[in-house]
Structure formats: structure tokens, C-alpha cells
Design a protein around this nucleic acid. Sequence first.
RNA 1: UGUCCCAUGGUGUAAUUGGCAACACGUCUGAUUUUGGUUCAGAAGAGUCUAGGUUCGACCCCUAGUGGGACAACCA
Length: 568
Amino acid sequence: MSATERNIEERGERKSLNFIEQIIEEHNKSERFNQKVHTRFPPEPNGYLHIGHAKSICLNFGLANKYNGKCNLRFDDTNPATEDVEYVDSIREDVHWLGFDWQDREFYASDYFGQLYDFACSLIKKGLAYVDDQPSDEIARQKGTPTQPGTESPFRSRTPEENLDLFERMKNGEFAEGSKILRAKIDMSSPNMHMRDPAIYRIRKTPHHRTGGAWNIYPMYDFAHGLSDSIEGITHSICTLEFEVHRPLYEWINNQLVDHKPQQIEFARLNLSYTVMSKRKLKELVEGKYVKGWDDPRMPTICGLRRRGYTPESIRNFSERIGVARRDGIIDLALLEHSIREDLNRRASRVMSVLDPLKVTLVNYPENYSEEVKAINNPEDPEAGTRNVTFTHELYIEREDFMENPPKKFFRLSPGGMVRLKYAYIIKCLDVVKDDHGNIIELKCEYIPESKSGNDTSNIKVKGTLHWVSIAHSQQIEVRIYDRLFMDEEPDGHKDKDFKDFLNPESLKILKNCFLEQSVNTVDLKQRFQFERKGYFCHDKDSSVSNPVFNLTVPLRDSWAKISGNVN
RNA sequence: UGUCCCAUGGUGUAAUUGGCAACACGUCUGAUUUUGGUUCAGAAGAGUCUAGGUUCGACCCCUAGUGGGACAACCA
């Protein structure tokens, strides 16, 4: 656990409990679950996990951890038509990567298909479930509307014997998909639509990714979920707000069939500004090639954030900070960015890289000479030590660090102006070289020999310090600059517009002419870097030996951008 | 013309009913700084959706209203 996490936790323990913790502590007082806390994270393996899932994962595992309980990983795989092992693997990887361990408790709703079938039979025997032969559209019609009661199915009064027989034959594959369905017999006039004889088992002849062709019928979510929770001894079944209206059904089913009855608790799902979070929309972005895949660094998926350079710790801190409640809202993306900056500031090695090079020639520095200057790897961490960087008469600086006609508060390089090259010398700009089109292509500068970092006797005070690389001692790299994927705070919050209308055309900029100091070995890189004065970067999997690629994780805060009006 | 949930600075969360409200992010000042980063010091910003009620006392309890959300998949 990090110092930040500990601080947050201590603050939390000293102060208030979130509403779920309050419920748990009430249960502990009343001994409802014998002081036990057992949660589960129940993804459906039909898509990749995103930052919203991370909130749920941190919540479920975090609560278990806090109350000395356990948290299971359970795949809610009751719909073979949409699910796949590809997703199972990615989910497993993502939960692990986030830092959580479910030990030997990796379960699948499909593990319980046998038991679930038996439970359905008992429901039938109790006269609380029946097989309906009507087509789905007819059943839907009879459901009524939220304001009008439904009507009862003509098959509602079949005898348990007949239902049992029919249900068994459904299982045996005697009937076509959609021709019959098992429904719970509850109340067609309930104000809660979910209580109007909900479907609990349907015929599906699609092979299941785990049970293969063993089953011709599959339980519906409402039937399988609560019973799976009960089977696993879950005490607190935490889910998002949209399941709130399912809670009466969740409880009805468990009340009919089992002794151990978990408590379902709903919380508001995470919404992040400038992004979309629904699986459907993320899938649309991937399939429509608006992004390069589920792990595109612009995606809010766990794998996308990972590739972007986010650390598990930063995501855990983020979920701690956003809290948990029952009202929906939108979290400011700035909070996520703050979390990763905070983490990377502490641990990322600083290196110098020029992303938009402008050549600087030091006219008074010997041509065939070079010196090694000492650079600090991480000012936040003395243990990180130092490294040497080579200094010569031909350098690159950042193009934006020079202005021919600078505004007042610009304290970088300009004609006649002086600036320090970090860890090296102060230089003075003597001349601006332009091409035929008037573009600046080079600066002729002189260096001040007495100004060398470490033993500066020049007595010159400069306001700016620039990063740089020696042209002869740098390596060319590709840098991918990412910005928010959407230009609107709530891209899916406009009734008359498609969320894709707000796609940011500049969400990815590929810079191929960047130069990185030689000290960095760009082969087989796992660590994250701060490119001085620019931001945090990580090595991308698209890298090759001849073309190293770095992703921008997040830029440094930039108060100059605010002053100069170049705010993102 | 229904049922249920929600409502606290810009954003997100707090506040054993009992000191006109705290924390984080964001914003703004200033200091430090060989990263316009970090750090440090400070500031602005809500009187808790509205109206009643209970109470000596309400962000908190009750009622009504308003606003937002959820609910009619053989999805989860």
C-alpha cells in the first residue's frame, strides 16, 4: 500500500464511512451475517473492462479487505450468444493488474447450471414457475406498461407436472429456440415490471464457451445472479443503480429457494467527463475504427489506460478519491489526471527529449569537443541517482521555446536573450537563420563558459531553463501525443446528437521527428519516464528497434499554456 | 399519467440532529525552484433544490412541490 493510499485510508477510518460501509457495520451489529463480509466482482465476459469496472473492482475487493473478508471473481456467463473466452482472459488479466487477488475463488455462473436447473424445478413444483408457449412479442405485449398492469398468460395455470415435463424437454432440446420459456409466477399487476412473471430460463442452442453443448437452456440474469451469490455465500451483492428495480425479484427468488440470502446494494456507476463508458459505445468506437482497438491509449478501458501508462496504484487512488454514493454525477477527468501525475511525479525517471526540434549551433563552442554533464534522475527521489548527458556545439531545443517577438512574460529564448540549458550552460541567442519561406531553421547562439552548472561563476541570472539534446548524441523516436477522445464534457448527454459527433479530431498526434537523450536504452523498456518539461511518457508496444515509440500518458501541468492562451 | 431512487461550493464526496458546513480536484495570489513541474503559504467560491412541519435547535426527521434518474430485452 502506498503512502497516499494509507493516508486516504486513515482519513477514511478516522472520519466517515461510505453508505455501503455503514450498511455493513449495521449488519455486523445485528449479526445478520455473523460479522462476515464476502463480496464478488461479477463481470459478464462479453467485453473489456473499463475504468467504471475498476471502481467496482476496487469497491468489492476493497470492502472485503477492509472487513477481513473475501471477494470472489465470478464470471456471469449465462448468455452463450455474446460471451467468449477472449474476454475471460482479458478480465482476469485486468483485475490482477489492478492489484487484486481472488486466490482460488474464480467462479462461473455456468459452474452452477446443474444446481440452477434443480432450483428451477423446485420453483415449478411449488407452483411458482410455468412454461409459456407464447412468442416473445406476445409476452411483451401482455407485460403492460409501467403505468398499466399486465395480463396473465393463458399458460399460467399449467400444472406443476406438466411444467416439469415441458421444462425437462426444453432442457433435452426438444423445442426450438424461442418456442417456449420458463417464467416465474409472481404478479402481472405489480407496479414493478420485473415482477410481472419474468422469464427465468430460455432455450438457446448456441454452444457455451465453457459447457459446450451440454445445455439447451440457460438461466436469465435475475434467476442466476442471486442464487449464484447465495451458493457462494456472498453477504453483500454490490451492483450499479440500474439493478435497483431488480432487487425485489432478487429477493423473491432467494426467498423461495435458499436459506442464505445476500443483501443487494446499489451504487452510482462512474461517469467521466469527456468520455463514454458504455460497453456498447466503446465497442462502436472499436468496430467503427474510430480508435485502434480496445487497448487504444485513448480508450477508458483498463487495457487502454495501461497502454497509456497509467499505473494500477493511480487508478486505485482515483477510485478511493471519487467515493461511492447513490446519486449519479460526472467525475472531472482532471481528477484522474491528477492521480496519475501524483504517482508518476514520485516514481518516473526524468530524461530530456525534444519533441519538435529546432537546431541550435553554439558558435563559440569547439566543434570536435564534447563534455558529459551530470543530470538528476528524479528530484523527488534522491535514491534514483544521476546520469551523464553529452553536451556538444550542435543541439536541439524545443521549437516552442524560442520566439522571435516574445510577449512580456515569455522567459525562454528570443533574439539577444539568454536562457540556461538544463544541467549545462547559459546561452545567448545571436542570430536567427531562416529558409527561403521565412521559416526559422536554426539559431546561432553563444555559450557562456563560466556558467556551467555546478560551478557557475558568471553571475548571470536567467529566468528560463530549457531542456535540450545533443544532435550527435540523441536517438530519433516516435512520440504519440494523446488528448481527450471527445470535445464535449458529456458526449452521450445530447438527445439529438450522436456521441461520435463530438470526437476530437486531434485526439492523436503522431510526432516522428523527436529526439531522446542517448542515456535511455529504448529496447525492452518497461519503466515510465518524465520527459522534462513536457509530460509523462511510456514505451509503446508498437516499438521496434529501429523505431522506438513513446506514448504521452499525461502532460505536466502547464501554467505557461494558461498565460499564453494555449490551453488544451 | 404509475412505482422506486436521488438532490450539499465549478466537480466529486463529508458532516454521533446541537458551534450558518469539512476534504479532494479545479480556479486564483504569492514564495521557492537549473522542469512555467514539484513543494510551500494563502484566497475566492455553497448557507445545503423550494415551501411547510416536528424540535429549544434541522444538511440530517416528516409532508408536499420542483428538478434529475431508473423501470415495459427470451441482455447483464
